[in-house]
Computed example of a mutant assay.
Amino acid sequence: MSDAKHNAMTAPRPADEECIQIFRTIKDDVLKEIHRINREDDRHGLHEMDKLKHITEYTPVLYATEDVAFGRNYFAKIHLGSEKYVHVRAHKGNDSVIEFYSLLTTPECAVWEKDTPLEYFID
């Protein structure tokens, strides 16, 4: 089992056609998760997602991969406009099915800056 210190994630590289196709496939799921987090923020008074105000784009800029026994994990930094980014994890199974896995969130943050490194994460 991989973790933050022990994994086979490649070094991040600029988004290419493979990355764009993977993260375009799960775009609706990513946006639904952002809106779900936003509702939770409002409920708990955190307002972390208020940093986004409006999502004006959805552009993968960096990505990394991790080959696993059952397919490949993809990690991406996605620009949502106004210099705000989310880190997204997806999985492409050996059967070529692409699924959204998670957004990187911490108790303090869910929206990242351009210079925040793209690193391995579980959830």
Rank of each mutant, 00 (worst) to 15 (best):
M49I: 08
F100K: 06
P60I: 03
G81C: 07
D115R: 09
L80Q: 02
Y74E: 01
L52C: 03
D115I: 02
K32F: 10
T59E: 15
P117K: 08
D41G: 05
R36I: 04
H6Q: 10
Y63R: 04
T105C: 12
I34N: 10
R89N: 03
V30L: 04
E18W: 01
E17H: 13
R43S: 11
M49T: 15
Y74V: 01
L52T: 04
V97P: 00
T116D: 15
Y120E: 03
P14I: 08
E119I: 11
I37T: 09
E99H: 09
R72P: 03
G81K: 05
K32V: 10
D50K: 13
S96H: 13
R13I: 10
C109N: 14
K92Q: 15
P107V: 09
M49F: 14
E18D: 15
Y101D: 13
L80R: 01
P107K: 06
K84V: 07
N73Y: 11
E33L: 06
G81P: 12
R43I: 08
T56Y: 08
D29T: 07
T106L: 05
L52E: 01
I122F: 05
A64C: 07
P107T: 07
E83I: 01
A110D: 11
E99A: 12
A69P: 04
R72A: 03
S2M: 05
